[in-house]
């Protein structure tokens, strides 16, 4: 039997918002370590990797490893039935072909349960090599979302250039060119509002704006976001999920032919 009870149910609602624009379906791999999900978007240009650790749940039981194929559109509809204050429990019997979501109101005076059919997904998983990135940039997630939204008006690609002075985001197209430069924060009083850059070597890469905008659907999960870059390898955009885990997006760069 599998059962995972999350007191802060709103986190799972936000995770859904972070996944459903990029992915139509995905396998939720459950083990005694926690819940993991890895899936590429339909165009195989970006990858989402979610990790929710068992110890972040109020109650977590996984008798046997379980992979639950879910249609994320359907799952999103069910999670919309949960209030932000609800406690959410996910449970399934071993070898089940359905999963049940239970939503409990804080004072237990309303308990809802929704059963959803599972899908057989034989999704391939990709090996993501450990990488010592040339540049990592931590910045407010709202700032990054704003940058992606503003610059994607100018072109379908965005150049992210990182030097020791700071990071520059640029886009150019028919209406013109936009450049946004963020300097490294001088003093870091409020951790989550700082721009912190660790640079081993300068990097400048080009990415498709539409995927970056899809990634920023995870903004509500964390006040800050971390970008990791190295020449000619996929960008990593990581949002922490409280103290339970993270969602990471990988995006292949656009490379000059």
């Amino acid at each position: 039997m599998f059962e995972a009870r999350l007191l802060q149910g709103s986190l799972l609602k936000k995770v859904m918002e972070a996944l459903k624009e990029l992915l139509n379906e995905a396998a939720w791999d459950c083990s005694d370590a926690g819940i993991q999900l890895q899936a590429m978007d339909n165009s195989h240009v970006s990858l989402v990797s979610l990790n929710l650790r068992a110890e972040g749940f109020d109650k977590y039981r996984c008798d046997r490893n379980l992979s639950m194929g879910m249609n994320l559109g359907s799952m999103s509809k069910i999670l919309k039935c949960a209030s932000n204050e609800d406690i959410i429990t996910i449970k399934a019997q071993d070898n089940a072909d359905t999963v049940t979501f239970v939503f409990e109101s804080p004072d237990q005076d309303k308990v809802s349960d929704y059963e959803m059919k599972l899908m057989n997904l034989d999704q391939e998983h990709l090996g993501i090599p450990e990488t010592d990135y040339a540049c990592t940039i931590r910045l407010p997630s709202s700032e990054f979302a704003r940058i992606c939204r503003d610059l994607s008006q100018f072109g379908e690609s965005m150049v992210i250039s990182c030097t020791k002075e700071g990071v520059r985001f640029s886009a150019t197209g028919d209406i013109g060119t936009g450049n946004i430069k963020l300097a490294q924060s001088a003093k870091v009083d409020k951790e989550e509002e700082a721009v912190v850059i660790e640079m081993q070597e300068p990097v400048s890469l080009t990415f498709a704006c539409r995927y970056l905008n899809s990634f920023t659907k995870a903004t509500s999960l964390s006040k800050s976001v971390q970008l990791s870059m190295s020449p000619e390898v996929p960008l990593v955009v990581e949002y922490k999920i409280e103290d339970i885990g993270h969602v990471r997006y990988y995006l292949a760069p656009k490379i000059e032919d």
Binding site: E124, L126, G127, I128, A252, I255
Partner: peptide, 14 residues
């Protein structure tokens, strides 16, 4: 002209 590469150019299936 910069072209979009698929992720599978960089990450191999397990």
């Amino acid at each position: 002209m910069s072209s979009q590469k698929p992720l599978t150019n960089f990450f191999k299936p397990l």
